[in-house]
Design a protein around this nucleic acid. Sequence first.
DNA 1: AACTATACCGGTATTAGTATCACGGTCATG
DNA 2: CATGACCGTGATACTAATACCGGTATAGTT
Lengths: 91, 91
Amino acid sequence: MVRVPLTPEERQRGERFGVLLRQARGERSMVEVAAAAGLSAETLRKIETGRAPTPAFFTVAALAAALGLSLDELAAACAEGAQAGEFRQAG
Amino acid sequence: MVRVPLTPEERQRGERFGVLLRQARGERSMVEVAAAAGLSAETLRKIETGRAPTPAFFTVAALAAALGLSLDELAAACAEGAQAGEFRQAG
DNA sequence: AACTATACCGGTATTAGTATCACGGTCATG
DNA sequence: CATGACCGTGATACTAATACCGGTATAGTT
């Protein structure tokens, strides 16, 4: 095995990431935001639904610009979410 | 063609991106920074040399955290660099 | 019911990111 | 020179991101 498959935690992080993007998209359509970011709507949908859990940096940067989000806050939000659900689930 | 190959501009952006990371690494070794970011040294090398021009978002986020960089500034620097190197070299 | 717009889903094709393996260069030791 | 440790690099193997296609479902309009 030369490339390790994505761990469940990474996929969960991708899901949280997608939720954040979807919230930021608000009422706008996928097609509009995807076009603004220079992506296909399918790619945006995969990212939002967590089916593409680790998108490329510049893809996320373009999306963040189209949505008016901060990359640092975005990454921090995912990291915080990971800690919240990672080892503090039981107590 | 279902996935468009990276354009020369995207590759150039990847090279600028790698240069920024290498500058931020300073005197530290690849092995140390890669370990701090949770990557293999080879992956860090590919990113720094521009052979991986569009790394994953969380890979970049981990690197930025290890190097003390801002993701927003990083993305902005690459975008500005694109404009600066495109038609305004002296800018 | 038909038409339009939006979003979800499975399948498919192609490129690219990431990790492991193997090699050369440098410095310190003997 | 031989050995070992660290650094950077190139080749290779494997998974994932991205895009396109067809089908499905919901909601609004006529």
